[in-house]
Design a protein around this nucleic acid. Structure first.
Lengths: 209, 209
DNA sequence: AACGAGGGTGAGCAAGCGCTTAGAGCGTCT
DNA sequence: AGACGCTCTAAGCGCTTGCTCACCCTCGTT
C-alpha cells in the first residue's frame, strides 16, 4: 500500500502488469468467472460483484465485456509463447529442449489452468479483429515447437514421419491439460509436466531411460 | 416421406434414432448452433429458425434448451463409448486393439467434429444430474482404454511407467481433435486417425515399422 | 479554501432472453 | 360427419442482459 513505486508481485505475479489496481481486480475476477461458467454465461454484474464493485465500475476501465476477454487472452498467449520460445532458444540437444518446452508449457497450463481455460477455449467469443490477432500468436507457438522438432529430425535425434502433424498433436496434448487438470486432483502440475515430457519424447522416437 | 416404415438413414445416419422428424431437425439444428457459437450464446430462436420452425415449436419436443443439450450429449457419449468398447473387445494383440481404438475414436471426433465439440466441451452447461450421468459415461470410456493398456503391459507388449496418466493423455489427445479439426483443412479424418494411432503406439512403447 | 480530475455508485434503459398460452390447421379414428 | 389428438404458430410475459447517465466522494494542486 505505502510502497507505491512497485507493482505488487512484479514479474512473478500473473497479472502484475495490469494497472490500476481496480482494473486488475476486475480482470482477475473476470478470469475466474469466465473459467468457471464460460464467457457467454458470465454477466458483467457477476464480474463486478467478485471484484467488490458496482456493475458500472467495470466500464470505467474497460469499454466492453469483450475487451476484458481480449486483454486476458492477449496476456495469456503472450506468456505461453514466451515460455515456448525460451525453451526453444535454450541450449542442449533438441530432445532436451523439446522436453523442456513441453514440461514448462504443461506446467503453465496446469498451474494456471483457470487462465489457460479462458485463453484456449474462449477464442470464438472474441470479435473478428481480436480473434485474428490471437490466431496469429498461436501460429507463432506452432512455429516454435515445429522448429525444435525440425532440428531434432535434422540432427538425427528424432524419428518423425509427419512433422506438422506431430507438432499439432504435441500442442494439442499440452493445451488440453487446462481442460481436465484439477488442482485438488491426484497429480501436481510438476508430475503432469514430467509425464508429458516423457510421452512427447516417445512420440518423436527418442528412446528414454 | 411416403416410406413411413423406416427411419431415414438407419444405423449409419447419426441421429437416425431420434423421432419424430421435427424433433430430429431441431436436434441437428441445435448441434450446429451449439458447435458454432456455444451453448450459452445460442438462442432458442436460432435453433428453431435453423430447423425452419417457430420458437414455440421447440417446446413441443423438448422441455427446455438444456434437455436438448442433454439428449445430444447422451447420444454422442453413447456412440463414443460404443466405438471404444468395440475396439477393446476385438481380437488381435493389445497393440492392434489400442491402435484400432484410437483410429476409430479419432475418426469419429474428426468426421463428426461439430457433434463432438458440443459433446466434449459443453459438459458444464448441463444441470447437476445430467452432468453426473455424462461424467459416469466418461469414466467408462477411461476404463475401456485403460483396460487395453493394462493388458498390453501384462502381455509385455507395452512399456508404460504410468498407466492412469498415459490413459488420460491418450483420451485427451483424441478428444482435442474435435477442437482443432477442420473439414476444409489439409488432412482427412482417416489421415489424422492413422497418424494418431501411430503416435499412441509410440507413447506406450511399441516399436513401429 | 476552492477547484478540477478521475474513480466510484444507484438507478434505469432498450434489447433480447427462455419459455408459455390460446388457438389454428390437419390427418385419423369411430 | 364430427370429435379427437397432435403439431405448429402468433403474440407476448416476466426477467435478465450489456451498457449508460447523472451525480457524489476523495484526492493533489493552487
Amino acid at each position: 500500500m505505502s510502497v507505491a513505486e512497485e507493482t505488487p508481485g512484479g514479474e512473478d505475479m500473473p497479472w502484475g502488469e495490469v494497472t490500476p489496481e481496480a482494473a486488475r481486480r476486475l480482470l482477475v475476477a473476470a478470469v475466474e468467472a469466465f473459467a468457471e461458467r464460460g464467457y457467454h454465461a458470465t454477466t458483467t454484474r457477476d464480474i463486478a460483484g467478485r471484484a467488490g464493485m458496482s456493475p458500472a465500475a467495470l466500464y470505467i476501465h474497460y469499454k466492453t465485456k469483450e475487451e476484458l476477454l481480449h486483454r486476458i487472452s492477449r496476456i495469456g498467449h503472450d506468456k505461453a509463447l514466451e515460455i515456448l520460445r525460451a525453451a526453444a532458444a535454450g541450449d542442449g540437444t533438441a530432445a532436451e529442449r523439446l522436453a523442456d518446452a513441453v514440461r514448462s508449457f504443461v506446467r503453465w497450463h496446469a498451474e494456471r489452468h483457470t487462465t489457460a481455460r479462458v485463453v484456449q477455449y474462449e477464442l470464438d467469443a472474441l470479435g473478428p479483429d481480436h480473434r485474428a490477432e490471437i490466431v496469429e500468436l498461436r501460429r507463432q507457438s506452432d512455429a516454435a515447437v515445429r522448429a525444435i522438432i525440425d532440428e531434432g529430425v535434422a540432427a538425427g535425434e528424432f524419428d518423425v514421419p509427419d512433422v506438422p502433424g506431430t507438432t499439432v498433436a504435441v500442442l494439442s496434448l499440452c493445451i488440453d491439460v487446462s481442460r481436465w487438470f484439477n488442482a485438488q486432483g491426484r497429480r501436481t502440475a510438476d508430475e503432469v509436466g514430467a509425464l508429458y515430457a516423457d510421452l512427447v519424447l516417445r512420440m518423436v522416437g527418442v528412446r528414454t531411460a
